[in-house]
Design a protein around this nucleic acid. Structure first.
Lengths: 132, 132
DNA sequence: CTGGCTGCAAATCTTTTGCATCCTG
DNA sequence: CAGGATGCAAAAGATTTGCAGCCAG
């Protein structure tokens, strides 16, 4: 991930390296706040501005994806290749869905709409939240 | 919609009737703020609390759906029956997708996950935002 | 050395909440 | 006439922004 980052001509500051390290292989789909909290341990002066700036930069360069389906906040996925997700409706835990689904482009009645992508959210209840 | 509402044993105030009227058949997927603005014309004293309270009540009674995939705010769909959507990545216009998709439940590797629903977002560019 | 990056604080935007008052059923 | 609903204002939470100073390339 760091290699790719350097190649894209962006500056590699210690803060960014730390965020890249944290995201690399992270499957928790952390929020900006999660990232900020994790970073604060090693960089007590790290600010939200830096976290958001870095995330936005990474997103613009296609290295992470912004997830918008947690009703409370944006979350980030270090895996930029298209895939789907399942979210626990109780605790908002998000897991990756490995299956691929072939979706034929929908028919939009009212107007021309150029389809460029899709994302499936599965809703469910995770094992921790499942009452036995 | 008003009939259903009355049947559910909830109080029918003028404000609620206005919101129900506004939502009935509305295909714009308005946000709380859109609704508030529209209501303010007829009810200059209508407050956000009332808008949010009413929406939350309607949601709990299964009469509307909350949409979480606009990155900037929650939006509401007066059509509670499951269906999918397409969102314009430029202007955030949301349209209904009428097609049905049969999705087999995904295989989650790491844990038991009881799947209770799904929602597909198609991303695209609407005719207005499409550069010719 | 210079433009991009950081840190801080303030601002903004959306949504929620406490509470006194009101009014539907 | 009681309990739910409203309106107001303040609070809370997430994200953005302005700007001065810093540092990676």
């Amino acid at each position: 991930m760091i290699g790719k980052y350097r190649d894209s001509g962006l500056k590699l500051t210690p803060q960014r390296i730390a965020i890249l390290d944290y995201l690399e292989g992270n499957i928790e789909h952390p929020s900006a706040d999660d990232i900020y909290k994790a970073m604060s341990k090693r960089f007590p002066t790290m600010s939200f501005a830096t976290v958001y700036n870095t995330l936005e930069t990474l997103r613009r360069h296609g290295q992470i994806t912004e997830l918008n389906f947690d009703p409370f906040k944006k979350r980030f996925d270090p895996n930029p290749s298209p895939h789907h997700h399942v979210i626990c409706v109780r605790c908002q835990k998000i897991l990756d869905v490995k299956n691929a689904f072939l979706l034929k482009p929908p028919r939009i009645e009212s107007e021309e709409f150029e389809i460029i992508g899709n994302h499936i959210e599965f809703y469910g209840i995770c094992s921790k939240c499942k009452p036995r």
